[in-house]
Simulated assay, not measured.
Amino acid sequence: MSPHPTGELFRTGTGSDLVLTRTFRASAEDVWASVTESDRTARWFGPWEGDAVPGGTIKVQMAFEEQAPWMDMRIDACEPPQRLALSTTDESGTWRLELLLSEAGGSTQLRFVQHLDSDDQIGEIGPGWEYYLDMLVAAHNGSPKPDFNDYYPAMKPYFTALIPRT
Results as ranks from 00 to 15, higher is better:
residue 3 P to W: 08
residue 4 H to M: 07
residue 7 G to C: 07
residue 7 G to I: 08
residue 11 R to N: 00
residue 14 T to I: 00
residue 15 G to P: 09
residue 20 L to H: 10
residue 24 F to K: 04
residue 26 A to H: 10
residue 31 V to M: 01
residue 31 V to K: 05
residue 31 V to C: 02
residue 34 S to R: 00
residue 34 S to H: 10
residue 35 V to I: 15
residue 35 V to E: 00
residue 35 V to M: 02
residue 36 T to K: 09
residue 37 E to L: 13
residue 39 D to N: 13
residue 39 D to P: 13
residue 40 R to T: 08
residue 41 T to W: 04
residue 42 A to E: 15
residue 44 W to T: 05
residue 47 P to T: 11
residue 48 W to N: 11
residue 54 P to A: 03
residue 55 G to S: 04
residue 58 I to H: 07
residue 58 I to P: 08
residue 59 K to W: 10
residue 60 V to K: 00
residue 62 M to S: 13
residue 66 E to P: 03
residue 67 Q to E: 15
residue 68 A to V: 00
residue 69 P to I: 08
residue 70 W to F: 15
residue 70 W to H: 13
residue 75 I to D: 12
residue 76 D to M: 07
residue 88 T to H: 12
residue 91 E to K: 01
residue 92 S to E: 12
residue 92 S to Y: 10
residue 93 G to W: 03
residue 93 G to K: 06
residue 96 R to K: 14
residue 99 L to Y: 10
residue 99 L to M: 14
residue 100 L to P: 01
residue 100 L to G: 03
residue 101 L to G: 09
residue 103 E to L: 07
residue 103 E to F: 03
residue 107 S to M: 14
residue 108 T to Q: 09
residue 111 R to G: 04
residue 115 H to Q: 15
residue 117 D to I: 00
residue 120 D to P: 01
residue 120 D to E: 14
residue 121 Q to C: 08
residue 121 Q to R: 14
residue 122 I to T: 04
residue 122 I to H: 02
residue 126 G to A: 03
residue 129 W to M: 02
residue 133 L to S: 08
residue 133 L to Q: 10
residue 136 L to A: 11
residue 139 A to L: 06
residue 143 S to C: 05
residue 145 K to Y: 11
residue 146 P to R: 07
residue 149 N to M: 14
residue 150 D to M: 05
residue 154 A to S: 11
residue 156 K to D: 08
residue 157 P to M: 05
residue 158 Y to P: 04
residue 159 F to V: 07
residue 159 F to H: 13
residue 165 R to L: 13
residue 166 T to S: 15
residue 166 T to R: 13
residue 166 T to V: 02
